[in-house]
Simulated scan of single mutants.
Amino acid sequence: GKFALIMFAALAQLERETILERQAEGIAIAKAQGKYKGRKPKELPDFLEIYEDWKKKKISAAGASRALNISRSTFYRKVKEYEDNLIIDL
């Protein structure tokens, strides 16, 4: 009984790995054809104004994220992207 259970577990693991490989191949093909682009980034038209207020300590990160209607982690990620682009552009 124990041997059969081990064999079934090994077969299940092998099948799972095969499924993941086929999925990765399918995604690569779809990306090559331009069909798999991922989620579009959220537009934040007021980001610069709120970013400046946050940098000047007029509002907190939580307040900034509420004003932009995004999570704090998304706000920090957008700040990092913005600041990284400023460094590259200089």
Rank of each mutant, 00 (worst) to 15 (best):
Q33F: 03
F75I: 05
E83K: 05
K55R: 15
I88A: 15
K2N: 06
P45A: 10
I87H: 12
E49W: 05
F8T: 01
D84V: 03
A64W: 00
A62Q: 11
I87F: 05
A28L: 07
E17V: 06
E17I: 13
G34R: 09
I50R: 01
N69W: 08
K78H: 13
V79T: 04
L11N: 02
G1Y: 08
R66H: 15
E21I: 13
K55E: 14
G63C: 09
A61Y: 15
D46Y: 07
E81W: 09
I27W: 08
Q13G: 04
A61H: 15
I70T: 01
Q33K: 03
L48A: 13
A4N: 02
A10V: 06
Y82F: 09
Q33L: 12
I70F: 01
D89C: 01
Y76K: 13
G26D: 02
D53R: 11
S73C: 07
D46M: 12
G34A: 10
K80C: 01
E25C: 10
E21A: 13
K42W: 04
G38W: 10
I6K: 00
G34E: 07
I29Q: 11
K31S: 07
D89G: 03
E15Q: 11
R22C: 14
E43F: 15
A62Y: 08
I59W: 01
K80M: 04
R39C: 11
A4C: 02
Y82K: 06
D53V: 09
K40A: 02
K58W: 02
Q13V: 07
K42A: 08
F3H: 06
R72E: 02
G26H: 01
I70C: 01
I87P: 02
N69I: 05
D89N: 04
W54A: 15
N69Q: 11
L11G: 04
K55T: 15
L11C: 07
K58L: 08
V79I: 05
K80W: 00
R77V: 04
A64N: 06
F8L: 05
K35P: 05
A30E: 05
F3T: 03
E15D: 14
I19Q: 11
F75N: 02
L44D: 14
L20F: 06
D46W: 06
P45G: 12
E81R: 08
S60L: 11
K37T: 10
Y36H: 12
A32H: 05
R66K: 15
Y82T: 05
I59K: 03
E21D: 07
K37G: 12
D89R: 02
R66W: 15
K37M: 06
I50E: 00
R72M: 08
E52R: 03
